[in-house]
């Protein structure tokens, strides 16, 4: 029985309340409240150092929050009793620097955690891997090593790797920031198709076009706080706060 249970839709996918995070004396998140509903695409923008990555990394506890609450599909993930690995297996994460495993072929990158974490058989894992590589347009790279892929291909392979775990939601941390401009489009296309398929997504990005067209919700962060939040078109066209306006004036 390896068929993944379908994502829950009766509770929010991600519910963050009163989240604080400090690195030593540096308070990076200062009371974040944010809800991502199942099937929603929430984009997070904001200046460098505003805490976007830290917020995202708290959601799968790559970063340990100082205080506050985070619920993923209704489960309190800060509960010390929780099986964190199980929670993480349901949350895909895509990094700015791809982080493919360089010692494994693309296929093995996609199958290793299916087999070791989900206990899928070799045949099943490879079948799922193939399907996801096809989805991101990389079927011909199945036996290549990551070093032989372009940045854009690596990032699409990384997305396929996360998808192969059949996650209920995906977190993206500036997935296109490390890419040459001409490679950004392919990755964004994959993400757009993923959003269209109904995947719950939380996306830290500088791609305002993507945020406007694909996002259901846009969150502007500055200095560890959510300054403004709303429909992407509204926020981008009529920012209500000065800080949002100043930021958008710089990036648009």
């Amino acid at each position: 029985m390896t068929q993944p249970t379908p994502p829950r839709t009766d509770v929010p996918a991600i519910e963050i309340a009163g989240l604080y995070k400090r690195f030593g004396d540096n308070e990076v998140l200062k009371g974040i409240d944010l809800t991502v509903k199942a099937g929603q695409v929430v984009c997070v923008i904001g200046p460098s150092g505003s805490g976007k990555s830290t917020l995202l990394r708290c959601v799968n506890r790559l970063e340990e929050p100082t205080s506050g609450q985070i619920r993923v599909e209704g489960i309190d993930i800060l509960d010390p009793e929780i099986d964190l690995d199980k929670v993480r297996a349901r949350i895909g994460m895509v990094f700015q620097s791809f982080n493919l495993f360089p010692h494994l072929t693309v296929l093995r990158n996609l199958t290793i955690s299916q087999r070791r974490v989900l206990g899928r058989s070799k045949g099943e894992a490879e079948e799922i891997a193939r399907a996801n590589l096809e989805r991101v347009g990389l079927s011909d790279k199945i036996d290549a090593y990551p070093a032989h892929l372009s940045g854009g291909q690596q990032q699409r392979a990384a997305i396929a790797r996360s998808l192969s775990m059949s996650p209920d939601m995906m977190l993206f941390d500036e997935p296109t920031s490390a890419l040459d401009p001409e490679l950004v489009g392919d990755v964004l296309d994959v993400m757009r198709a993923l959003a269209d398929s109904g995947m719950t997504m939380m996306v830290v990005t500088h791609e305002m076009g993507f945020a406007r067209e694909v996002g259901d919700e846009l969150v502007f962060m500055d200095d560890g706080m959510i300054v403004e939040e709303g429909n992407p078109r509204d926020v981008l066209a009529n920012p209500r706060h000065d800080r949002t306006r100043a930021f958008l004036a710089k990036v648009l």
Binding site: N60, L62, D85, K86, R88, A89, I91, G92, M93, F95, S97, N99, L100, F101, P102, H103, I112, S113, R116, V117, L118, A158, R161, S162, M165
Partner: peptide, 27 residues
Amino acid sequence: VPKGQSEAARSLGMSPARTMFFIVLPQ
């Protein structure tokens, strides 16, 4: 071995031991 490697493995749900054995040690 870059920290991103074990972060990627952990975010895929691998335990610390599996991460060490299958991802970090081979590299």
